[in-house]
Amino acid sequence: MDYMKAYDLLGRYKIKALRAAYVNSSKEATDFARENKIVMKLISDKALHKSKSGLVKLNLSTPEQIGSAFAELAKKGEALKPYKILVQEQVGNGTEIIIGGNTDPQFGKLILLGLGGIYVEVFKDVSVRVCPITEYDASEMINGLKSKQIMLQDQRNERIIKNLLLDVSNFLVKNPKITELDLNPIILHDGTYDAVDLRLMEE
């Protein structure tokens, strides 16, 4: 599903992603940035691992940086048509987590929580539950992780993650046609969170 469409849909379930927009030129990107740091991404169905393929450009703020990143992505995009270029606010440091949703042929909607970024695949430290989940389930999803202590370095994160899990579970149950969801990563910082990348798959 289109990024901006997914952004709007999840927003209706209190799941907020970063402010973002599609841009057609480096001028539009520069206007979006308003001198703040932004991230630029190439969005294409043919590109699955954006960061591994150099399709995500970070720390862009000057018109020069934005201009050269746009040019590079546009060039790479030629091989991945159709593509779009997305710009997004860049968040500072925080703890990265991943929340996923999936559809099991037997048991229906599943929800997954893990530490974010590259670690989720290395350590396979994830907890999974069947939707809908209860508040207890949400707590236990966190408690069941070895990476719990990393996730909860900031105590406020516990509440944030729990609410987010409950919101995502609610979203999955109420949207049966969404077969997969990927909020990866979500950055927890300063007592709040930002979903940096989101993907929804429809049946």
């Binding site: 699955l48 949703g101 037997q106 997954l112 999974v128």
Partner: peptide, 23 residues
């Protein structure tokens, strides 16, 4: 079948069973 997403590859069918048992 949906191995193209991180989520799908991690929440394979045994993960679903374990979730059900635990929950």
């Amino acid at each position: 079948s949906a191995a193209h997403s991180h989520t799908a590859s991690l929440a394979g069918s045994y993960a679903a069973y374990e979730a059900v048992f635990e929950q």
